[in-house]
Design a protein around this nucleic acid. Structure first.
Lengths: 148, 148
DNA sequence: TTATGTTGTAATGTCAACCATTACAATTTA
DNA sequence: TAAATTGTAATGGTTGACATTACAACATAA
């Protein structure tokens, strides 16, 4: 299975926050029209990001803003915030291998550390990328547009 | 979302093939009782592994066997065989970011290489682990059982 | 304080994927 | 030919993703 589009939507939201912070009121409606999804999707994702301490959201007046510096928010933070898997486990292990079978009895011993190793590789890479990288590149591409 | 249990089931099947190859007839029924799922699930996974050139399956007489040496079959091979995502893409990108919005227009430019980098990290790690590792550890744990 | 705009969230619906199960045709072997 | 087994289609239950409507809770400006 794939990682839900909530992840890319969340990064898109952050890119909008940075790009438009002083020009536009960053309401769920505004963000929804940039991402092109229903405003409620945006609100739910903002809720998850807020619960993870990554954004601040104002009720009534509207507007979302960063709760930390862009350098301190990694893709891993965002992934954990929006991807709701129990214990963050990447692999879904089949539930009840037979305890009567020598292989069934030991398959967890054999596999658990290997699966963990793969998950760690994924998470390490996610941790290397921050919103600072995203904001820098977003500015670069938008500036490039206005030149030509 | 999580990687489907088809992956761990597939590795479990391989461990059974190696452990029981000369002692038992490796039918879908036998494998199903070790994994503890319906035999049809086993047959479907064996079909996918066969299509990927990883196993041979005999009809009628029953029995599955490796199509390559254990050293040559990596977790990445199994992952690709069993996980049916288009182009093997790990991330599901939201479909239609607004082309009216500067951020929406450029979000793919900004993100695509970063997502690819994460996917590569995952796949590289999957490629490091082979069935030879699994078979070695399976033997180790089963031998350890019979000692005590 | 009231009107307005906005977020938070519940409820509902559609769709796709996963996994289970039954059934039976196709195939192999004894 | 009979028995065993795989291949695969059909069906159903369950869950998660995403969309949408509706409205209560809350903040701000007049």
């Amino acid at each position: 299975m794939q990682i839900s589009s909530r992840f890319t939507i969340a990064v898109h939201i952050f890119a909008c926050i940075d790009t438009f912070q002083n020009q536009e009121k960053l309401t769920s409606n505004f963000l929804a029209s940039s991402v092109n999804v229903n405003p409620v999707i945006i609100r739910n994702i903002l809720s998850q990001l807020k619960a993870a301490g990554l954004v601040k959201v104002q009720r009534g007046s509207g507007g979302a803003s960063l709760a930390k510096s862009p350098k301190e928010i990694t893709f891993l933070d965002i992934y954990h915030a929006v991807e709701c898997i129990e214990n963050g486990e990447l692999f879904h292990f089949h539930e009840n291998p037979s305890q009567q079978c020598p292989v069934g009895r030991n398959i967890h011993h054999v596999l658990d550390d290997k699966l963990q190793q793969v998950q760690n590789a994924l998470e390490n890479e996610l941790q290397k990328i921050t919103l600072a990288d995203v904001f820098k590149d977003t500015k670069y591409y938008i500036d490039k547009e206005s030149q030509s």
